[in-house]
Computed example of a mutant assay.
Amino acid sequence: MTVTPSIWLIGGTRESRELAQVLALNHLPCTISVTTESARSLYPSVPLLQVWVGQLDADSLPDFLTFHQVVAILDASHPFATTISQLAIDTALKHDLPYLRYERKSVDSSHFANNQARNPDRLVRLPSFEALIQGDYLAGERVFLTTGYRTLHLFQPWQKRSHLYARVLPAVASLEAALAAGFTPDRIIGIRPPISLELERALWQHWQITLVVSKASGTPGGEPIKRQLATELGVKLILIDRPPVAYPHQTDDLTTAIAFCRTNCAGVGVIPITPPN
C-alpha cells in the first residue's frame, strides 16, 4: 500500500476540528488522533484527512509514526491533557520532528475585574484539584462539577459532606465513572458542549447550585459564561488553573499553525509503506 506523509494533529478539541477543516481546504495531509469513536464524526471526511481512534503511549507511538509517515506534530489537545502533550514533546525531540502547540487563549480576567472587586469571595483560582479536595471549599455546598469524568473519583470522599452534581459527556465511560464515584442518576447530566448561557443558567437554578467547579479552559470551555452567571446568580466559582507544560513552541494564531503545516508538508510525496503486524 502507499501512504502520504502527514501532519499528526492531536485532536479531541474544538480547536483541532477548526484546524482539520482548514487543513482540508488547503489540501494538506493530516492524521488526527482521538481517544473515542464518537469523536470521529467531528472531523470532515475527505481523502487527505485520516482519523485514528485509540490510546497512544510510548510503546505504540513509534509504529504510529512509521505507519502514518508523520513529518511534524501539531498539538491541539485539551489544555488539561498533559500526558499526551508531554509524550508528543518527548517524541518530537527523540525523532527530530517539528512540534507546535496550538492552544486556546486564556480568558482575559480584566473584563471581570470590577465584578470580582465587588465580590472577592465569588471567584477562587486554585493550582490543582488536589488543592481543592484537601481544602474546605466544598463543605455544605451544592456543588456543580463541570470538570469532566476523569476527575470525579477525586470527589468521592466529599459525597457525604456536600451535595455534588456532575455534568459529563453522554458516553458510557463517562456515566459509569460518575456512578462509580458515588453520583446518583438524579445528580448526573450527560450533554456535549458547547453549553449555551440559557441552558447553563437553567441547570444551576434547577439544582439550586451554590458553588461551581470548572477548569480554566478558556472561551471554548465556556469559562466566560460561568464567570458571568456566577456574578448574576451570586454563585461561587472555583477555577482550576491549567497544569504547567514546557511547550517548546506554542501559538494561538490559526494562520501560524497552518503555515507550520504547509512548511513541513512541502515537497512530500506518496511513498510505499508496509502496515505493522
Rank of each mutant, 00 (worst) to 15 (best):
M1E: 14
V3E: 12
P5W: 02
S6W: 01
I7G: 03
W8D: 00
L9Y: 04
G11R: 04
E15G: 06
L19V: 14
L23S: 06
L23G: 02
L25N: 14
I32K: 03
V34D: 03
T36V: 03
E37I: 11
E37N: 09
Y43V: 05
V46R: 04
P47A: 07
W52I: 01
W52H: 13
G54F: 08
Q55V: 15
D57H: 10
A58T: 13
A58Y: 06
F64N: 08
Q69P: 06
V70N: 02
V71A: 09
V71K: 11
A76S: 12
A76W: 05
S85N: 10
S85D: 08
Q86M: 09
D90M: 04
T91V: 08
A92E: 08
L93N: 14
K94Q: 15
Y99W: 05
Y99G: 07
Y102P: 12
S106N: 14
S109Q: 14
S110N: 13
H111L: 14
N115Y: 07
Q116G: 02
L126K: 01
P127A: 00
A131R: 05
D136C: 02
L138F: 03
A139R: 14
E141P: 00
F144H: 05
G148S: 09
Y149E: 05
Y149P: 00
R150S: 06
H153I: 03
Q156V: 01
Q156E: 12
P157I: 04
Q159S: 09
S162C: 13
H163D: 10
A166D: 04
L169N: 10
L169A: 08
P170Y: 02
P170L: 07
E176M: 09
A177T: 01
L179M: 10
A181F: 05
G182S: 10
F183D: 04
P185T: 11
P185Q: 12
P185R: 12
P185I: 07
R187P: 08
I189Q: 02
I189V: 13
G190H: 04
R192C: 10
P194T: 07
E200W: 01
L203E: 05
T210Q: 04
L211D: 04
E223G: 03
R227V: 01
L229N: 07
A230C: 14
T231H: 10
K236L: 04
K236D: 03
I238F: 02
L239T: 06
D241M: 06
P243K: 00
V245R: 00
A246I: 01
H249D: 12
Q250V: 10
T255A: 15
T256E: 15
A257H: 05
R262F: 06
R262M: 12
C265S: 11
A266N: 15
G269L: 09
V270M: 14
P272S: 11
I273H: 05
P275H: 09
P275T: 00
